[in-house]
Design a protein around this nucleic acid. Structure first.
Lengths: 137, 137
DNA sequence: ATAGGGGTTCCACCTGCTGGAAGGTCAATG
DNA sequence: CATTGACCTTCCAGCAGGTGGAACCCCTAT
């Protein structure tokens, strides 16, 4: 299978597939002419990657998951741990976004959005506040 | 005010402040010795930036917001539009994450997480599926 | 004089691709 | 047999939004 076929089959752009080879996630063979040849298992791996990425796993997570997938001596605990950590990351992000959303939608609602310059959104962004604790540089 | 003072005052790392100067968000003066000197208004701008970034606005949004802030001929409609677009982005992201979360937590729950290798998480990631529509390369 | 805690620049790296240039290959057509 | 067009290849640059580090200067206190 050439990369184009794999791309349409897996839903991943050819560029991404090449990138995945670059970072060592898949190892397709090469034909005489230099073209990549993807075996069943390569295609399967790429589909796996596509699904894992769609669930938001990082590339490093994917690497670990693929390793575990290939390792019949794995324990499901190892897999679950990765998934749970990822779940935590997702929850964290959602919380963050939800807080932003709350503040922002409040501001948006209070803004007339007309021809006048007065704007509570800008006012809020500009308002003086008590000193922040410094973030580590 | 030196950069360190501004950093602890605004809560932004010095590195970030330099970066913001680099991309033209703030224009501190320079002392004879090359040190940056931040005026009231620079510090104010940086605080503004810190708050806008904390609400998730992109740097380009921040640039626009600062411009509007400085422009007394602005209309609140212009500001509101930026905020509303950002709100939409946030909602989109939350939806995305929530869907991931649903799938993922379902998988995590179904996984024993013990010493055995059988794992529904891996099984799901590996499962054969109907052909995807190709993503544009 | 020296030590430390500022500051400066510049360059590389992070994540996860994506775009584009410059070129090789292959199958089909004129 | 030449050419066209759709493939494929590599490599380099760039996106966002910083962050880390090296190598160096500056200022104050001891």
């Amino acid at each position: 299978m050439n990369i184009g076929d794999v791309a349409s089959f897996s839903g991943l752009p050819a560029k991404t597939i090449r990138y995945y080879e670059d970072i060592g996630l898949v190892q397709p063979l090469r034909k005489e002419n230099g073209y990549r040849t993807f075996r069943e298992k390569d295609v399967h791996k790429l589909a796996f990657l596509g699904r894992a990425r769609a669930l938001g796993f990082t590339i490093e997570d994917c690497r670990s998951l693929l390793k575990l997938y290939a390792d019949t001596d794995r324990t499901s605990a190892e897999v679950k741990q990765i998934a749970e950590e990822h779940l935590k990351r997702i929850d964290h992000k959602v919380t963050e976004l939800t807080e932003m959303r709350a503040t922002l939608s409040h501001l948006v609602e209070s803004c007339a959005g007309d021809h006048r310059p007065d704007c509570p959104i800008l006012a809020d962004l500009a308002k003086q506040q008590t000193e922040n604790s410094p973030t580590k540089a």
